[in-house]
Design a protein around this nucleic acid. Structure first.
Length: 284
DNA sequence: CACTGAGCCTGCTAGC
DNA sequence: TGCTAGCAGGCTCAGT
């Protein structure tokens, strides 16, 4: 499922193809894919507008329009943005049932939004709402503002570490895959109360998050099933996962201890009980 | 405040 | 082989 590295890859692949294009038309094939449920108002503000930039905020793909409005696209679980150079060429017919929205672009190009599970959302964000959105979302973990001190500040609440790391208002962009991978590399148990982490653990967690995300961006994302870049390519980061998706009892890649699976906040969690002790490692 | 569970969705798969 | 129950999970909302 797309998290920060996948969304970043989508943005990077789409940017050179979308910047400067004009949105000539919009077609909605599943009504709820458009978040505010007013297609007419959406089209009035979007059609005829140009795409000035393609950026990312947390897990949101952001199309910055010439007018200053934003179109944000949340891929959720199975959302996929696919650029097509020539819209007169027929689409792959077997994918067509999952096509939810279509942006017709200048010079015969097209941006297709596929979404099997229909969880994805396209939203028009005006300049006022944009400020609110910026305040709601948490720190960007790959930006210079994500320091050890900033992470320590976030972790002051007495909450399960995993739940806090998944909270988009705390840190924007982490999902189930990269939270499990980060906690494993940091050696912190997912059920640890966040405010009980020692400074040395916070330092390890900070660099683990940055390392895991940086590696995944370099691998162009994790493709477990649906995820593709803006040009339809798969990522390769699935080869580098150490705990996510592993079966209960499969050996830890570091110490060989059988991995454990549990559900935390309705999410499957895989961890190593030896490498990630519940009561904290007193080392360092 | 922290946590739980339902709901949104559909394809895949484990198990009968 | 064919069917079905359950799982996958980001996010919001209501309830404990």
């Amino acid at each position: 499922m797309p998290e920060l590295p996948e969304v970043e890859t989508v943005c990077r692949t789409l940017r050179p193809y979308l910047c400067g294009r004009v949105i000539e038309d919009f077609e909605l094939r599943w009504r709820r894919t458009l978040a505010n449920d007013c297609q007419q108002a959406f089209e009035e503000r979007v059609i005829g507008n140009s795409i000035a930039d393609v950026t990312r905020r947390g897990k949101l793909v952001v199309l910055v329009l010439g007018s200053g409005d934003w179109i944000t696209i949340h891929l959720r679980m199975t959302g996929e943005l696919l650029f097509r150079e020539d819209r007169s060429v027929a689409r792959t017919p077997e994918r067509e049932p999952y096509l939810r929205a279509i942006f017709a672009l200048s010079h015969y190009a097209e941006l297709d939004f596929y979404d099997t599970r229909k969880f994805g959302r396209i939203t028009l964000v005006n300049k006022v709402e944009l400020i609110r959105l910026g305040n709601e979302l948490g720190l960007e973990p790959l930006s210079p503002t994500f320091t050890v001190d900033a992470l320590a500040h976030i972790l002051q609440r007495r909450r399960r570490l995993k739940s806090l790391l998944l909270d988009q208002t705390a840190i924007a962009g982490l999902g189930n895959i990269y939270v499990d991978e980060s906690m494993f590399r940091a050696g912190t148990h997912p059920l640890r109360p966040a405010n009980e982490l020692q400074h040395a653990e916070i330092v390890r967690l900070h660099s683990a998050i940055i390392d895991v995300l940086t590696m995944a961006v370099e691998s162009r994302g994790t493709t477990l099933r649906d995820y593709r870049s803006g040009l339809g390519e798969q990522g390769t980061n699935q080869e580098r996962l150490l705990v996510y998706g592993k079966k209960q009892g499969s050996p830890c890649s570091v110490c060989g201890t059988p991995l454990e699976r549990m559900t935390i906040g309705q999410r499957t969690t895989v961890y190593c009980p030896t490498c990630q002790p519940l009561y904290g490692s007193n080392q360092a």
